[in-house]
């Protein structure tokens, strides 16, 4: 495959994985948690590197999951100590992220890990770092990792679809029916972590939040059905990734920033014109309250 082809494929995989996970982030009202985890996985990656001295996929995934779970646990713990939820998130993730930054500049400091790269990502380097897979041949490592993560996400969502739905909508009923709500919560946090770390190379910690939240928030405006919301969010994610690349290539700018910008455009269009919740329909359609 061509150089451009790999980049577009990688970007689309980022868009798809992030936007699917994002649907549940939105519905569980945990958008802020995505922001937190996208930063703390940096610490996970750094520590994984310090322990194993290599930057390979599986190590990074494990490091990220541990960092993500620690973030979720610490936030929960602070919250129980009567610190407001959003403040807890703010305290935990900035501290862990700062620790990651300090470790990079003092103990790691090499060409493969730097703060700039972690924050912004660099998708243009991705096609150069290849691994050889059986049957498929030479594949960029980041792309292979993203494909694996996407498969994990798809399997988790499909297998536990009704459990995700119920624990998001009504966790109290879910618990009273014997569904392990807490376990599902941490499983979900793990999924967010691996999605983030797999997208790290391509779009970085800051832009990954755009890919996680915005396509799902846009899809929410178009539909009243969870399955449709998932499909729409996925489509929006891929469209943003591809248009983002095209914009970047045209005006020669950062690919990750253009992708994030594209998600914003899609949201704006949705916000104005969606038939259910859009600005235009609010004025052209009688409101629900007046129908009652």
């Amino acid at each position: 495959m061509s150089y451009t082809g790999w980049i577009i494929l990688t970007a689309s995989l980022v868009g798809l994985s992030c936007s699917l996970i994002g649907v549940f982030l939105i519905l569980r009202k945990m958008a802020m948690m995505a922001d937190a985890i996208s930063h703390t996985v940096l610490l996970g990656i750094v520590v994984a590197f310090l322990v194993t001295r290599e930057l390979s996929g599986p190590h990074m995934l494990i490091g990220a999951v541990i960092a993500g779970l620690i973030t979720a646990l610490l936030v929960q713990w602070l919250y129980q100590l009567e610190i407001e939820q959003h403040a807890s998130i703010g305290i935990v993730f900035t501290t862990l992220f700062a620790l990651g930054v300090i470790l990079i500049s003092t103990s790691v400091g090499n060409a493969h890990l730097d703060v700039q790269h972690a924050l912004m990502g660099e998708i243009t380097f991705i096609p150069w770092e290849t691994i050889t897979l059986p049957l498929i041949g030479n594949v960029p490592e980041a792309t292979a990792l993203l494909a694996i993560v996407l498969i994990i996400i798809l399997i988790s969502i499909i297998a536990f679809y009704k459990e995700w739905k119920l624990t998001s909508f009504d966790p109290a009923l879910a618990a009273s029916l014997g569904i392990p709500v807490v376990l599902m919560h941490y499983l979900f946090m793990s999924l967010v972590s691996i999605t983030t770390v797999a997208s790290f190379d391509a779009v970085g910690a800051i832009m990954v939040v755009a890919m996680l939240i915005t396509p799902a928030a846009s899809a929410y405006l178009w539909t009243d059905k969870l399955s449709v919301m998932l499909v729409l969010s996925g489509i929006f994610g891929v469209i943003s990734a591809v248009t983002g690349y095209i914009i970047a290539a045209r005006i020669d700018t950062s690919i990750s920033a253009s992708m994030a910008f594209a998600t914003g455009i899609i949201f704006l269009i949705s916000f104005i014109s969606s038939p259910k919740h859009g600005l235009v329909s609010k004025y052209t359609r009688p409101s629900i309250s007046s129908l009652r």
Binding site: L27, K165, D170, A174, S176, L177, Y220, T223, V228
Partner: peptide, 30 residues
């Protein structure tokens, strides 16, 4: 647990959740 049913406060859930009435009732069978 199997024989206990619970009806939480109406305000405890987000009624903007993308689902319909029938689907919410089916949730009782999960």
């Amino acid at each position: 647990q199997r024989v206990i049913g619970y009806v939480p406060q109406r305000g405890s859930v987000d009624w903007d959740f993308p689902t319909n009435a029938l689907d919410v009732v089916v949730m009782g069978l999960y």
